[in-house]
Amino acid sequence: MTPGNRHCRARKHRGLSLRQLESLTEKMGHKVHRNTLSKIERDRYSTFSPQQIRVICLALGISADWWFLGDDRPANAVGAYNHGLSKNEKQSVLQTISLLKKLLGE
C-alpha cells in the first residue's frame, strides 16, 4: 500500500470527502487545498511542508510513520525496512524524515 492509498483509506475511514478534509485543515490553521489532497491520494505529490504533514496527520488521526511507512515503526528505523522500495519511494521517505526533523526542531 502506498502513502496515497493510506491517506485515502484514513480519509474514508473518517467519513470525510476531499472538500471536508480541506475545510478541516483550514479550521486547524493550515489549509491544504483539495487539489493537493487529491494529488496526495494519487501519489502525485511529493513536496510536503512540515505544516502540511502535521495538519493532515492531526485531521485524519494518523501518525506520519503510518502514513509514509505503513506502520508505527520509528522513522529512524527506515534503513532496516527499505528493501523493495523504489528509488522515488526511498527519496520521498528521506524527504519526509527531513521535514519531520525540521518540524520537531531537531
Rank of each mutant, 00 (worst) to 15 (best):
R11H: 04
H7M: 14
I97L: 14
C8R: 02
L99G: 00
F48H: 05
Y81V: 06
G84R: 15
V93I: 12
L100H: 00
G61L: 09
G84N: 15
L94P: 00
Y81F: 14
N82A: 14
Y81Q: 09
G15H: 04
S23I: 04
S38N: 09
Q52W: 03
R9P: 01
A10M: 09
I56D: 05
G70A: 07
S38F: 05
P74Y: 06
G61M: 08
A77Y: 07
H13L: 13
E89A: 15
D65T: 01
K90E: 12
K90N: 12
M1Y: 13
L100R: 02
F68E: 06
G84H: 13
L16F: 11
P3A: 07
Q95V: 03
T2R: 15
N35M: 07
L103Y: 01
E89G: 10
M1D: 13
F48R: 00
E106C: 07
K39E: 09
K12H: 12
W67G: 03
L100I: 10
W66D: 06
R42Q: 14
W67I: 04
D71H: 03
P3R: 08
L99T: 03
A10P: 03
R54V: 02
G105W: 00
K39W: 05
I53D: 00
E89D: 15
R11N: 01
A75K: 06
F68N: 02
P74S: 12
L100F: 03
S49R: 10
Q95E: 13
Q95R: 14
R6Q: 11
K27E: 13
S92L: 11
T25G: 02
R19I: 04
A10E: 08
E41L: 02
Q95N: 14
S92R: 10
G15N: 03
S23A: 15
T2N: 15
D43L: 04
F68S: 04
E106L: 14
H7G: 02
G84L: 12
G70H: 05
M28R: 12
D43N: 14
G4A: 11
E106M: 13
I62V: 14
N35F: 06
V78D: 09
N35R: 10
G29Q: 09
E89W: 06
S92G: 10
N5Y: 12
L99E: 13
L58V: 05
R54I: 01
R44E: 15
V78F: 12
Y45V: 03
I40N: 00
Q95W: 09
L37Q: 07
R14I: 00
L24S: 07
N76M: 09
D71Q: 05
M28H: 08
L100M: 13
G79W: 07
F68D: 00
H83Q: 14
A10V: 03
K102S: 08
S49L: 11
D65K: 05
D71W: 01
R19V: 05
C8G: 01
L60G: 10
G70S: 10
